[in-house]
Design a protein around this nucleic acid. Sequence first.
DNA 1: TAAAATTTGTTTGAGGTGCGAATTATATGT
DNA 2: ACATATAATTCGCACCTCAAACAAATTTTA
Lengths: 405, 405
Amino acid sequence: MRKIDLTSFIVATNDTVRSINRRIILDLIRTRQPVSRADLARLSGLQRSTISLITEQLLTEKWITQGALGHLPRGRKPRFLHLNVESTRIVGVNVRPTNTTIALANLNAQFIAHESFPTNADADVFIEDLTRRLQAFIKLYPDVYFEGIGVSMPGRVDSVSKKLVFAPNLGWGDVDLQTPLERATGLLVEIENAANACALAEIWFDRRSDGIQDLIAVTVSEGIGTGIISNGQLMRGARGVAGEFGHVSINETGPLCKCGNRGCWEVYASNTAAINDYVNVTSGAGSKRQNKQFECDKPSFDDILHLSEQGDAKAVETIERMGHYLGIGLAMLTSGMAPSMIVLIGEVTRAWKKIEPIIKNVLDTRLQKPALLTRIVPAEDNLQPRLRGSVALILQKHFGAPLTA
Amino acid sequence: MRKIDLTSFIVATNDTVRSINRRIILDLIRTRQPVSRADLARLSGLQRSTISLITEQLLTEKWITQGALGHLPRGRKPRFLHLNVESTRIVGVNVRPTNTTIALANLNAQFIAHESFPTNADADVFIEDLTRRLQAFIKLYPDVYFEGIGVSMPGRVDSVSKKLVFAPNLGWGDVDLQTPLERATGLLVEIENAANACALAEIWFDRRSDGIQDLIAVTVSEGIGTGIISNGQLMRGARGVAGEFGHVSINETGPLCKCGNRGCWEVYASNTAAINDYVNVTSGAGSKRQNKQFECDKPSFDDILHLSEQGDAKAVETIERMGHYLGIGLAMLTSGMAPSMIVLIGEVTRAWKKIEPIIKNVLDTRLQKPALLTRIVPAEDNLQPRLRGSVALILQKHFGAPLTA
DNA sequence: TAAAATTTGTTTGAGGTGCGAATTATATGT
DNA sequence: ACATATAATTCGCACCTCAAACAAATTTTA
């Protein structure tokens, strides 16, 4: 049950009914395809006559197509319906501190084309770069209809002003990306934080989230971000800045974080933390020795992963320590929000076999039994959750529950 | 935008439209009364003809009443409509470890009658006690219509099995309260965690939450509980166990909590923590002295509040320490979820003037500017937020947004 | 081979809902 | 008395889902 927001509600009209049922049918086709009209009637509880009308509408609007006939032991054979995944395209943009990717996706968030370019450190220059490249990108496909452009950003986006706020990894001020992009392309543009985008990607495109309405995505890279989905909706909080669990302190007197707080979770469990740990901290046997050779020439997180796979004791210790602190933070999320699933995203999932038992151990010793209903799973990093999330941003406009009341 | 849960969705029919608009109108009357039909048309954007039909329905169902005529400089005078707060009653039940209260409320969550009795330590005996008392209580009012019974509990309630889970302060196992109460009274019964109930009370009955859809209630008593409202909805998580931020560790190597974890927030910032602190820890000048006289005869938290009001140095120090640790936890909630408002509930709010600057200071030094959009306010303890929350549990069935899609 | 049975999908009329224009009701000012 | 203004209702229309009847397609059975 939701409280009606009397400062911004939406009354129902006759087409509200159709809008609701249409989206249910469309989503049923998306996930259950191939599926017949009779199946849809059984799955939805709507009358077959209603299904006929709705599917007719969806067919004329090219959202779905008719396929082959099905086989049944008796009676008239059903005509299968399919989601018309190629009828329209969505542009996904993934902005990261060093690189930005533009990709063309179908409705299944499968990518047809990619392109990458360095992210300019200056916000204004970057915006000019991006708009030019997007315009050129779109021109390459004169015959396709674009549903919109989804952008995932390493920062929080104010849901009111649409401006970027709190993006320490970019160092940009209050930047408005949406307006210039919409103006330049004439398309719907949605900007969202990367962790939020990943959470959307998981709930919209990952079969493991079937039947789940409460989910947290944890992105582990330079820092740690969290995207929270509660009751099937993104938790944005006041002005869209919810989800900074990476900057929650797990040690009041810990080292200073660049956010100004002390002992933030990401100071202990991010890739950056692991690199610092590998360089500075005691290794193997117990002797505290400084690694002068690494001090100026730090290894990358990939290096550490590689070394640990090869059995390097110090790298193994670093990964184990990282696993431990990931567990500490995940215990916080589990206690506090008890999602049905937490999805971990980042290079560290390549070491899942190593860190899973460590995380599990931390949670087992720190949590009550009921909290252990939360499944913790890794995301496949090569599926590009950030990009798929930016596709989900646009997709949900058509496949999500409409706003009512 | 919400993802449709394809395992349990609700299709729309024609009366879905009426249900949505009816609830909007009903809630507008509730909050804006006295209000005319023409006002409602302007406020809602619905046609005056539609408003007439809906209000007629609400009048015949006695949800609203017609009042006096309004005054206008020109034209026909409007007929004011009012919420019929006395037409129906809601029973609120507040179960606490030592005492249980039953109360009769009108639709404004104002209480007409109270009764209290000791909470039996044995769950089965308690249930028998409560059902008997509820039956007798209801019999006292043979002429009133009861909308239902809302129960707030010091524990988490599994939203699937409806059973109590995780109630360390009661020490009961998997108890099902709902079924026996519904059977005994024939009324709708809703059970909810106390912190969740408080959050509902704040969002439904506190004018400070007008226009707010993201709010956290923090109950500080023997332990610390949190009730989280995101997008106007209670965050229940998997099986209803979300909200145990009181058992999130703020110090990995801190003292053992009775939940099994170490250094939980409530080990530092609950009333119990303050009592232990007052008894055990160093006072004023710096000399560490044991208070033998208190060891067997601990003061109550009320005693400490009283002493600190009178200027007792040790009590003041205890309250200040408590304020500091409350701030630490509130910083976690603010970073992580960025609600528009956090409401603090508990005896400690009586010392609000003392602790507010301490809390504010902790947040200022630990949080980024955007997170500081969160207002932190105390709830009036004498308004009985737990009981009002149990009323809200039933109220929202009629005044909340209906489930669609 | 023809009729019965079964299942899919469409057509049709009834009932509900909001919209918008017209109408009725009630007030003030000139 | 009349114009003007505002409130509230009435009425025809368009849209929606429902339920039952109907049409289409296929297998089983006599």
